[in-house]
Simulated assay, not measured.
Amino acid sequence: MYEKTYPNKRFKLTLQFLQKHVNLSDSILDLGVKNPFSEIMISEGYSVENTTGKDLDEERSEIEDSSAKVVTAFEIFEHFLSPYEVLKSIKADRILISVPLKLWFASAYRSKTDMRDRHYHEFEDWQLDWLLEKTGWIIKDRQKWTNPVKKFGIRPILRHFTPRYYIVYAERGINSKA
C-alpha cells in the first residue's frame, strides 16, 4: 500500500493525532494564515478555514464569529502575547493545540527581520495544561515528540532525547461556555 510522505516528522505525527480526534465531517478553524499543514489537512479531506492574518491578540472576531466544530492551533500559541484571551474567545467545543516546548539548552526563537515572527512564550507542558484548564478546557489526550536534526554537536545530540513538541486535544468543560 502507498503511504504518503510529509516534509517532516512533526507534520506526520500532527496528522496522526488529528486523525485520532477529528472526523472528516468536522469543520475546522485553523488559527493562522493558510500554511503547509493546513494544505495537508485539506488534501486529507478536512474542511479547513484559516484566519486571515489579523493580529489575534488584538482582533478576535474571526474566532468569535466562526461556527467551526474544531479549532486547531499548530505552532501559533507561542506567538501570542495573550493566549489566555484567544482561548477564552473560542466558541468551538474541541481544540487541538501544538506548541514547541521550552528547551533548557536553546534560547527562545526570535526573528531579527520579522517583528511578528517571535516566540513570546515557549511553554513547558504543565504551563499549556494550566492555561487550558484555567480557560475551561479539559485535556483528553496529549503527546510529545523529539525533533532530531542531522547536524553535529551537543545540541543536535540533545534533540534526539529531549521532547521539542507538545500536542494536546481538549474539550470545553460543561460550565465554561461563553
Rank of each mutant, 00 (worst) to 15 (best):
R10S: 12
A92P: 00
I40A: 06
K20M: 01
Y6W: 11
Y120V: 13
S176M: 12
I174N: 01
D117L: 15
Q16N: 05
P148K: 04
R142E: 05
Y84T: 15
P100G: 06
S43I: 14
P83T: 06
A170W: 09
E62M: 07
Y166V: 04
A73L: 09
K4G: 11
R164M: 15
E64T: 09
D26T: 05
H119G: 07
K4S: 12
V86E: 07
M1R: 14
E64M: 11
D129A: 05
L81Y: 15
K69F: 03
I90Y: 01
W145Q: 07
P36A: 11
R94G: 02
E75V: 14
R110S: 13
Q143A: 09
Y165L: 05
W145P: 02
A106I: 09
K144I: 10
L96F: 00
L87N: 10
R60S: 10
R142G: 14
I95K: 01
R159V: 07
V86T: 14
E78K: 10
N23A: 00
T14E: 10
N175E: 07
F123D: 03
T14K: 02
R159C: 13
I40L: 10
N35C: 13
I139S: 03
G32V: 08
R110E: 13
L132T: 00
H119C: 14
K134T: 00
S98I: 09
G45P: 15
S67D: 15
D93P: 00
I63H: 13
D57N: 03
V48G: 04
G153P: 05
K112F: 08
R116T: 06
Y165T: 10
E58V: 11
K144D: 07
D30N: 05
F80C: 08
S82V: 10
P36N: 08
S107D: 11
F123A: 01
S67T: 15
T5I: 12
F123H: 04
K20F: 00
E3M: 12
A178S: 06
T113I: 15
T72R: 13
L158M: 06
V86I: 15
L29E: 10
Q19S: 01
D114N: 15
Q127V: 02
N23Y: 05
I40Y: 09
S107E: 14
D30C: 08
K140N: 11
L13K: 04
L87P: 12
E85N: 08
S27A: 01
T72C: 15
N35Y: 12
K134R: 02
G136F: 01
W126M: 11
L128T: 03
